[in-house]
Amino acid sequence: MNKKKLIFITGAVAVGVVVQLLISSGVINPYFAQILTLMSMYAILATSLNLINGITGQFSLGHAGFMALGGYFSAILTTKLALPLPNFLMFPLSLLFGGLVAAAAGFLVGLPTLRLRGDYLAIATLGLGEIIRVMFVNWKYVGAAAGMKGIPGYTNFLWTYVIAVFSILIIVNFIKSSHGRACISIREDEIAAETMGINTTKYKVMAFVIGAFFAGVAGGIFGHLIRLLHPNSFTFMVSVEILLMVVLGGLGSITGSIAAAVFLTGLTEALRQFSDLRMIIYSLMLIVIMLFRPQGLLGTREFSLDMFSKFTKKAEKAER
């Protein structure tokens, strides 16, 4: 890992610590703290789905299902099996467990379904998400249709933020490796990728499993934030909402996904004041944005400081 990255991580984590201190001391009120936490959580969800949809080009609509698996199974660990562990160990352990369950499910369902292409895969993953949801509706141990109550509120901003930073870092590093390039080549041209010696099934499943893992982790964060898990919190509209972040940010652009996650979470909250009209405005904005920027806000480009320098250089040239 190079120096620049280490500095970046340290800086990013430092920002998180400062914000958490502001929250703890009451400068940032609990309402805003929750919004910031949700933004971080959606950043994890959007980047992980981007790995599947944007980077590998596999159209998945089942992210909410993996989120549900992670949420429920991590909550089982903290709520049902009260292991004698301190909270700061229990929580990450439960998130890891939730993520691994989701990843395992991703592997099991990915292997047969990832042979499907395009819309067929979309509809199959949508179906899988719904099947997972219906399973929880019928599972009495976790409260069935009434939902799972009494989950400890372990989630706070700092946890979520730090996990988000590391999740995104892992995904970005993966994309930059040769394995990530293999995934990108599948998006570009699956047949050509295969004839370049790339085991396309393996890499499709790999992207799917990594994506599912982080969706599971985010699900765990969600459960321990809301402290109640209900099957209806994981309908396919949630998958669509996450996909919307990916599309809005630009398929394949990680920074775009993060920006869109922050923007849409903020927008949802900002629209709350319109109560009844909230969803009408939201849906109209969605249509208008898609009509005017179908390639997303950033396209496939990454947002970086280089962009600014290019911009200023152009401006300088223009001045001369």
């Binding site: 949809n53 919307l244 599309v247 009209l277 969803m279 009408i280 939201y282 849906s283 249509i287 898609m290």
Partner: peptide, 30 residues
Amino acid sequence: AYKPLRNSHRVASLMTAVGLSLFFQNFTVY
């Protein structure tokens, strides 16, 4: 909602479709 997007990425028109769906639902609720 769909005609202007006929030549862009297919996910874009899918998202517009979802937007329309949400709009119809919520407008009716309203």
